[in-house]
């Protein structure tokens, strides 16, 4: 293992940023979100959870696909700019790191998405262990270990130092490039102590042992038809907060924007909570908010696992628990529906 004093991190950042687009949790107007680093950026590695997840780095909220220019009877097509830059994302928590594997199932395995695949291939992920998990975290329920966050490189912040350990070839490559900034760290005890502290906290968290056993593919119809959805979804505003802050939500829309001289076609995040989601000629397939609400949670807890060997499409980051304006969330769903055994 290697370590670097926290006060030397800005030098490390500017070195990495010479060859890569470097993404870090950056403070802006009261919020911390992953954003491209520059020398004026206020980095906040202490923030447990960025408001939005880290998924933007691979799956940005909007992505230009193609541009049509119309000039009389002549139509020309502008190819999109491909994301060829090398990227490093630094400070990813274990839950968000797992979410990338889930997004891979949708955008690499099921339906390959060129932009996503390219970004994934070009990006090195540096994770950071969670020193202070909070009440809404339930990564443990999905077998994620916040004390050993994985990715290409794992890091831990203990007593003024960032401890660094590469896990993959990409991680080793980055480590070789930056090794001059680090000192050797022969004693693993600081990291190991923090790991046991983190695991002890996680064991005490109220949602760590939440019971997911009810959510199996064979219960699909029973869960779908539960009369409890009505009360669960009653206060839902049909906004996009829960889906847009969620690391595993993967729905998008393709839209055309009429420019003065043609059409700009772009892809953007969509939310199954929106009234116009998957609207087609006959209207909306899910006309009521109850149906839309049910879709979000059925997808995460039943449909996705049915199609992906039982893997849930939730990583327990707790963002929807903390950010829903009306405090409805996946845990309330799991608890309420999980009750009827």
């Amino acid at each position: 293992m290697m370590k670097i004093s926290l006060k030397n991190l800005p030098e490390l950042y500017s070195f990495i940023a010479k060859k890569n687009d470097l993404y870090l949790p950056i403070f802006k107007a009261g919020q911390v979100d992953f954003a491209k680093w520059d020398k004026d950026a206020i980095v906040d590695l202490n923030k447990l959870k960025t408001t939005k997840s880290a998924k933007d780095v691979f799956f940005p909220q909007s992505q230009d696909l193609v541009r049509f220019e119309v000039d009389g009877k002549k139509i020309s097509i502008d190819e999109p700019i491909m994301p060829t830059n090398k990227q490093v994302i630094f400070g990813v928590k274990a839950c968000d790191n797992r979410s990338f594997e889930l997004l891979d199932m949708a955008f690499v395995e099921d339906y390959p998405d060129t932009f996503y695949e390219m970004r994934r291939a070009n990006t090195t992920i540096v994770t950071l262990a969670c020193a202070k998990p909070d009440e809404a975290c339930f990564c443990k329920a999905y077998g994620i270990d916040a004390a050993d966050p994985k990715g290409d490189v794992s890091t831990w912040i203990v007593d003024g130092y960032l401890h660094w350990m590469p896990n993959t070839d990409k991680g080793i490559e980055l480590t070789t490039e930056v090794k001059d900034f680090f000192e050797l760290d022969m004693d693993n005890s600081a990291v190991e102590n923090q790991q046991s502290e983190i695991r002890a906290i996680i064991d005490r968290l109220p949602y760590s042992n939440i019971d997911l056993s009810k959510f199996t593919p064979d219960k699909l119809l029973e869960l779908f038809n539960s009369p409890k959805w009505k009360a669960l979804s009653e206060a839902c505003l049909g906004c996009g907060t829960c889906t847009f802050v969620c690391p595993t939500c993967q729905c998008y829309d393709v839209k055309d924007f009429k420019t003065k001289t043609g059409v700009q076609r772009f892809k953007c995040w969509d939310s199954c909570m929106f009234a116009d989601f998957t609207k087609c000629a006959h209207g909306n397939t899910r006309p009521s908010q109850m149906q839309r609400y049910r879709q979000r949670f059925m997808h995460k807890l039943v449909y996705f696992p049915s199609n992906h060997d039982g893997v849930y499409s939730c990583v327990g980051c707790g963002r929807c628990v903390q950010k829903c304006p009306q405090m409805l969330n996946i845990v309330k769903v799991i608890k309420t529906l999980g009750e009827d055994k």
């Binding site: 802006k28 107007a29 919020q31 979100d33 408001t51 939005k52 909220q61 505003l237 049909g238 906004c239 996009g240 907060t241 847009f244 802050v245 939310s271 929106f274 304006p325």
Partner: peptide
Amino acid sequence: QNELSKCIRCNACRNV
């Protein structure tokens, strides 16, 4: 600019 560039267009403000 600083404030509004954080907006994720979730529409929660409108819907509430």
